[in-house]
């Protein structure tokens, strides 16, 4: 099997251009690491807080390189059948009844491909996103090992299925549990930190271009200030984008500073836990306003 993933010869400029085309704001570290993963044909294990843009990374990679995105959302109890392949039992049953045992019912005709098998058997550039792998059981991790090391899986009835052109693989984890050493051994690692003020501002300016720059600065400053609080679920970049979109929709071009009522009424876009929202009392609200005002002055 070749290591060629369809992304051979990809340079950092290519990756940066792909991210640009998809309005994905990425620092040099992300660009270099993604380029390496593509060039070396290694799966990339992306870890970080929820909402940091891990899933988005795979999506923009596929979008930017015009590649097919195959997504496997992991969950507790995920089985090989749901991830790899299933046999079409109804069709098999009908065939057995109709043909009285002529021919095998375990061939391609009766095979239902699931994301992992599709990723192996596909042609051209593909990005396989194995999302939130930490939610799946350890047994599922074991299934991934063969796939990630050799880009092949064994289907007992059909034999070994190998990828002619392996996909680029992005695995995300929210670190709700530790992953096995065997899985980690097969991957490159990328830790996505919560965005800095500047990066978050750049993200919002791209994602919500209609929103006034000073208001964007205010939102980023307040999101950053909230991350300093011991919240149950600190807001990620995705939540800040939602918040900015909500503010944009409600304000209709108004460029004034955000007032207390606006902040309170839309805080649900940013904070997803009731306890976190209740934590925003008058004192914290004043602190948020203060951070926002400072950011507005600097933005002006």
């Amino acid at each position: 099997m070749s290591d060629a993933t369809g992304f051979d010869g990809t340079t950092e400029s290519d990756v940066r251009a792909a991210f640009e085309s998809e309005d994905y704001v990425a620092g040099d570290e992300i660009v270099t690491t993604v380029t390496l993963a593509l060039r070396l044909g290694k799966p990339l294990l992306v870890e970080g807080e929820p909402g940091a843009g891990k899933t988005e990374l795979a999506k923009v990679l596929a979008g930017g390189f015009d590649a097919e995105l195959l997504r496997l959302q992991c969950y507790e109890g995920l089985t090989a059948e749901s991830a790899l392949y299933e046999w079409n039992y109804t069709k098999q049953l009908l065939s057995v009844q109709g043909n009285e045992g002529e021919g095998s019912v375990f061939d391609e005709e009766y095979l239902l491909e699931r994301p992992l098998l599709s990723a192996l058997r596909g042609e051209g550039r593909r990005v396989l996103l194995i999302d939130e792998v930490d939610r799946a059981d350890e047994e599922f991790e074991a299934l991934l090992l063969e796939l990630l090391s050799d880009f092949q899986v064994s289907v007992p009835e059909l034999g070994t299925v190998s990828a002619t052109t392996p996909p680029a693989v992005i695995i995300t984890s929210n670190r709700t549990r530790g992953l096995s050493d065997a899985l980690k051994r097969r991957c490159l690692f990328l830790h996505v930190a919560p965005p800095s003020f500047e990066k978050e501002r750049a993200i919002l300016e791209r994602k919500v271009p209609a929103l006034d720059a000073a208001v964007v600065a205010e939102l980023c400053a307040m999101a950053g200030r909230l991350r300093e609080e011991p919240l149950l679920k600190p807001p990620g970049a995705a939540e800040t984008i939602d918040w900015a979109r909500a503010i944009d929709a409600l304000r209709d071009g108004n460029e004034d500073s955000l007032d207390d009522a606006e902040i309170r009424n839309t805080l649900g876009c940013l904070l997803k836990e009731v306890e976190d929202i209740e934590r925003v009392d008058d004192e914290l609200l004043a602190s948020l306003r203060e951070a926002a005002e400072r950011a507005r002055v600097e933005a002006d």
Binding site: D28, E29, T32, T33, L36, A37, R39, L40, K42, L44, L45, L179, K184, C187, L188, F189, L190
Partner: peptide, 28 residues
């Protein structure tokens, strides 16, 4: 081994790139 491949891929001219490449290879 992965780190060696990564280092060769990014080259030796840029300290920051080499740091990112080795970090991605060596630090889970």
């Amino acid at each position: 081994t992965t780190a060696a491949r990564a280092l060769v891929a990014v080259g030796f001219d840029d300290r920051e790139r080499a740091r990112v490449a080795l970090r991605a290879s060596l630090v889970p």
